[in-house]
Amino acid sequence: MRSCAESLSAYGLRALGREWGAPLLPRGGDITLCDQIVLIGSGMVWNVYFGVLAVAFGFVLATAVALAKGAPRRALRAPATAFVFVFRGSPLFIQFFFAYEALNLIPKVAGSLDLGFVTITADTRWLTRAWAGALIVLFLNTAAYSAEIFHGALRQVPKGDIEAADAYGLTGWPRFRRIVWPTMLRLAWPSYTNEAIFLFHATTLVFFSGFPAWQQSGDALYYANYFAQQTFNPFVPYPIVAGYFIVATLIIVALMGAVNRRLNRHLPREARPRIRLRPQIVR
């Protein structure tokens, strides 16, 4: 039997790849409780990676899409509305499958681009790996969901604020950056916090759909599922994942709550909106 310290050194970073720990995962009766806690914890690295990067990039795109969706010009509004509808109207699970197959197809169809004088051969195989392909899907997905939240918030920006900005001679970009955008964020923040939690939970789907795990390095749920299959006992690994996710959810709430306080620091204490936890389920 392995001691806990041995499990930690063997599997602490195993999720990053075979070179980062013991090449083989523990099997059958050889599995200790420490193995499960350590390996599932190392899998959380992937959940954090997908969650943080998708939310960070998604935030930027979501702002752009929300503005386009509220734009007076149809040429801007229609694509933004279609983008939001496609990503919010279909299951993330299917989006993963579709993206994986589509990304596999690209090198076959457009692998070499012949421009007459020069042939560009793009190696796009890295896109079919989870770290890139799944991240793109999650990024677009959270951008669509967040864009809908931001779009709703943009419509709620008080008319008086914008009139006051006009009165001060603020127009265009300065008006957006100094008046509209901060108010939009302030109004959207409680819902956006839930979206961030929701997306973080959705990262568990990555290795269960399209994208295969490479060298048995997957996310927390991938390892939990592995242990449940190896030990025929779901009562240990799944509660461990649940525990990790509850802790992670509390951290997200704390971080987003700090931002919420900063956004609302000019308001009297009782007027500040509170973040209510309304976690959602599979998208």
Partner: peptide
């Protein structure tokens, strides 16, 4: 059910009830 990814429940409940 809140605070835990639902996929965990979808994997857990059927095996747990079955057993």
């Amino acid at each position: 059910v809140r605070g835990v990814p639902d996929v965990v429940f979808f994997l857990f409940v059927p095996i747990a009830v079955d057993q």
